[in-house]
Design a protein around this nucleic acid. Structure first.
Length: 496
RNA sequence: GUCGAGGUAGCUCAAUGGUGGAGCAGGCGUUUCAUAAGCGCCCGGUUGUGGGUUCGAUUCCCACCCUCGACACCA
């Protein structure tokens, strides 16, 4: 059960961001869903005439990447360059998902690193960063540091006969505990700060249980692949602290303060899309960091986010996707087989966004054949073929989208808007069966042509409504109508 | 363990306490403008289990079974 209030999606300019995926693996279908959904919202906002800043990028620092680069026998920078390339393909119209981001921020870029350091200084000035000795838990068997949740009864689950070593380490900490009340006040004042509501409840109760300060740096001697801590050559900033700053560094913070204010402040804040594993980072830690830096910023430009939208995960065959299970569904493979818009369609309409949902290639194919080949694609063919066969003149009239469609977007429910479009597709198919213009043309040519012209107009309207979902297909339909052509090959060939 | 969400047709999901619906899949029929597509009809359910409240429960209450999530330094 998901309930979303309307808000945040009316008037003015608009800033939306995805999380920055960590580049230790190829883009997976879960992130594909996140970025396609964000893209649909961004494209819809542009359709309304709003100016949109749409951000994404790559999170490139940290231990795992440092290790992976070492294993690959290459430098971390070379390693992440390759991955940034992989992710940037998502923008490609044919090989990727035709994602219309305005900026792609890489956390290893000089601008971002400078911003992360400046952000650190603000938090330091606010008195929220301090150095503390603490003990890390280390398993000699794994040769790895362990977190409490990885231990069972104080022992490593893989090496239960070895005892965990405690290692002293001195790191910088962020005074998270100071922000318990301010965070609660923020949640209190903003009904829809986190959607869906059950995720909002999770983070509220998490914060209510009390907050502990957390470490935000790592010893350079152990792990050097990160942004240097300002004025301390021994330490680098812990990866996620630097990664979160990307939402503002992408806007030119702190050097281009005018541009920054235009998007971060004048929009009323950023709308963030993130997976359910990200809720604490985005809705609590990042907000606390903003509050901290804000208190040391004379311009008071670092306001809280506008809204954080948390999506579920995609499973396959009822299980988490993993290489060992062999059930990984690669979005690029689907694009190769079915095309960019088919994958966009599936991620927009055939999975549930807020809840976890299961995806299999069988389901994908079924949905493709039913709704794209037999549904939309066939409808385009039959109407435009009739029009060109019978030489029908058509005058396109602009019309306003239905309220059902518009309200669905206000409700942050693009799926409902897509459902409406496919209902219209069904209606149009039924209208053809009812009017039978292909029969009528032999007995009453004028009436038949009038019917067909009306159908072409309706098809054009469907093409307009498809803009946020299937941009390339939408464009194709609109130009076929304008140029009075029928498609030479099927838009979505049926797959057997 | 504590808290939260959920269990409805083969699948994915709907249903202010008032005869349980839709899409897909499956079956039958039918049309030719169309991609063997379209349209029409049909099949399909003891609503997780057992109690309770009620004239009436998918809906409210209780118990139980099962699934999933949160309960902090993996990002």
């Amino acid at each position: 059960m998901v309930s979303v209030q309307r808000g945040a999606y009316n008037g003015g300019n608009f800033y939306i961001t995805t999380t920055l995926p960590y580049v230790n693996a190829d883009p997976h279908i879960g992130f594909a869903m996140e970025i396609v959904q964000a893209d649909i919202i961004a494209r819809y906002q542009r359709m309304l005439g709003r100016e949109v800043f749409f951000n994404t990028g790559t999170d490139e620092h940290g231990q795992k990447i440092s290790d992976a680069a070492k294993e690959a026998g290459t430098l971390p920078q070379t390693y992440v360059d390759g991955y940034a390339e992989q992710f940037s393909i998502l923008k490609n119209k044919d090989r990727g998902l035709n994602v219309s981001w305005t900026n792609f921020i890489r956390t290893s870029s000089p601008e971002h690193k400078a911003a992360a350091q400046e952000f650190w200084r603000r938090c330091l000035d606010a008195g929220d960063i301090y150095k503390k000795k603490y003990q890390t838990k280390y398993c000699v068997g794994c040769e790895l540091e362990k977190t409490d949740s990885e231990l069972e009864g104080g022992k490593c689950s893989i090496h239960p006969n070895l005892s965990i070593q405690l290692i002293d380490e001195e790191n910088y900490f962020f005074r998270f505990s100071k922000y318990q009340d301010p965070l609660r006040a923020l949640y209190e004042s903003r009904m829809d700060f986190v959607v869906p509501d059950f995720r909002f409840n999770e983070i509220k109760s998490f914060v209510s249980r009390g907050l502990q300060d957390f470490s935000i740096s790592r010893l350079k001697s152990k792990m050097s692949w990160g942004v240097p801590v300002p004025d301390d050559s021994e330490q680098v900033i812990y990866v996620w602290f630097d990664a979160l700053v990307s939402y503002i560094s992408t806007l030119g913070w702190p050097h281009d303060i005018d541009n920054f204010k235009k998007w971060w402040v004048e929009t009323g804040g950023v709308v963030q899309f993130a997976g359910k594993d990200q809720i604490r980072m985005q809705a609590a830690m990042w907000q606390a960091m903003l509050m901290s830096a804000q208190s040391a910023s004379p311009e008071k430009e670092l306001i809280a986010s506008k809204q954080i939208v948390i999506h579920g995960f995609i499973t396959s065959g009822g299980q988490k996707m993993s290489k060992s299970l062999g059930n990984v569904i690669n979005p690029f493979d689907l694009v190769k087989e079915y095309g960019t818009d088919a994958v966009r369609y599936f991620l927009a309409r055939e999975v549930s966004f807020f809840e976890d949902s299961d995806v299999t290639v069988e389901r994908f194919k079924e949905a493709y054949n039913a709704n794209l080949a037999n549904g939309l694609g066939n409808l385009v063919s039959r109407i435009l073929k009739m029009r060109s066969n019978y030489h029908v003149d058509v005058v396109i009239e602009k019309s306003e989208p239905s309220e059902v469609y518009t309200n669905a977007f206000l409700d942050l429910d693009p799926k409902k808007a897509a459902d409406f479009v496919w209902e219209e597709i069904g209606n149009l198919d039924r209208l053809i069966a009812e009017r039978e213009p292909f029969k009528k043309i032999k007995t009453d040519e004028v009436a038949a042509k009038k019917d067909i012209a009306m159908m072409v107009v309706k098809l054009y309207e469907i093409g307009v409504l498809l803009t946020p979902f299937l941009p390339a297909t939408s464009e194709k339909i609109l130009s076929l109508v304008q140029e009075n052509k029928a498609p030479e090959t099927p838009l979505f060939p049926r797959k057997e």
